[in-house]
Design a protein around this nucleic acid. Sequence first.
RNA 1: GGAGAGGUAGCGAAGUGGCUAAACGCGGCUGACUGUAAAUCAGCUCCCUACGGGUUCGGCAGUUCGAAUCUGCCCCUCUCCA
Length: 297
Amino acid sequence: MQKVLVITGPTAVGKSDFGISVAKELDGEIISGDSVQIYRGLDIGSGKITKEEMQGIRHYLIDTKDPFEDYSVAEFQKEARFLIDKIAADNRLPIIVGGTGLYIKAVLYDYEFNEEVIKDEEYDDLSNEEIYEILKKVDPKCLDKIHINNRKRLIRALNIYHKTNKGISAIKDAQKHEMIYDALIISLTSSREELYQRIDKRVDMMFEKGLEKEVETLLKKGLTFEHKALSAIGYRQFKDYFEGKITLDEVKELIKRDSRRFAKRQYTWFRHQFKTEWFDIGNLNEALIRIKEWYDE
RNA sequence: GGAGAGGUAGCGAAGUGGCUAAACGCGGCUGACUGUAAAUCAGCUCCCUACGGGUUCGGCAGUUCGAAUCUGCCCCUCUCCA
């Protein structure tokens, strides 16, 4: 099986830097596993690394998408898998670095997405209760995992049923839930307190680097807060600011808060959805040793 | 010194006799997750040996079957006048 190294962890732990040092050490190339850095023009707010910071290491899936367009797991899966093969063909180690859990999992595991299901149809005329009732008949099993208030998921499940004539739970049941690569998943962590400090510092830095200006530029190009790209943390918090409802300081605080909440959700995901090995950022040497050990197997 | 306002859970803030261990917001924590995932959604947050029990609403003492809510005294904070 093809070896793939994954470096993940909550926002602001320092995945990018570590990824680069590992890539240098093992002659690897990096595939970004990040749903926001894919967008061109979303640089500061997404914490995108600069050309210089890449230190000559090749990075993929950064800046490949126009912010006016939507992106999706399915697309990521396809592109990342293609790149894994390509990098491997060059005799280099593919390293996925990023914090978008679902994206990474979809690449590693035998997730299958149906070609026909691309966009959600409109179900505006149906209430959550009504959708729930329909699903109860056609795919009751999926409701174990979908709360009635989670409209997005309800609609998605119903849409999948309509397009494929199969329930989403049946599609999942047909999968093996096994990794299709020889992947080592390394998760970086630190104490909550330290992480929150890092987040605060990072957000302050973003403002110093001109985040406000970046958002302004994007808006001038015609992008709106309805676009998916701007629903990301670091961007959507500016909506009220540009509408004159809150101050810049309040925007900053909101970004910090939402980043903290996001980090928490990431932890939950990595802990429960991944078979991963954790390393404290004070112990990166150990992580490197572990990676080499796996690499030499 | 005089006049007024107020002290409620980590913070902000409701609540003016029983339905209140106390709305709501913030902060914190936990969880779900297969085409929006930096998204969407659910739960917990006074203490405990927890389908039950124990202590709360500045303090103390009362009224009452029953008080965060009524009375008295005390402590503290804020605003205004001297």
